[in-house]
Design a protein around this nucleic acid. Sequence first.
DNA 1: GGTTTGACCATAA
DNA 2: CTTATGGCCAAAC
Length: 117
Amino acid sequence: MLPFDEERVVGPGWHDRVYAAVRQVPAGRVTTYGDVATVLGSPRVARHVGFALAALADDVRPPVPWHRVINAQGRISSKGDVVRAERQRQLLAAEGVLLDDRGRVDLKRLRFDFPDA
DNA sequence: GGTTTGACCATAA
DNA sequence: CTTATGGCCAAAC
């Protein structure tokens, strides 16, 4: 059974799988690049999770909650793009995910547990 | 089709 | 705590 094959909202390839996994993350929860990669079958492709999100289009449907994906340290990784990092921080705050004084999310509490993993 | 790049991760110092 | 290094593999050039 292929629940996401029906969608086919974006181009073929790796990105599609990443988007499908990220859409499983409910509001108010977060996940890490490594976790998404693990669910996809390869724990070592964490970089490509972020890579896929970087190539994410705005008119993709359904929308992909990319802001719920952070790095393993509980921090926002926008690699120099401060604007995008700030946007992510606000989107998370809107869902009740707040950052502590060190700018980190409480992964122990808010990390989403994938049913497949 | 080889080389570079990258929203990462784990480990070492 | 921070910075540095190696590795991983798909996409872009």
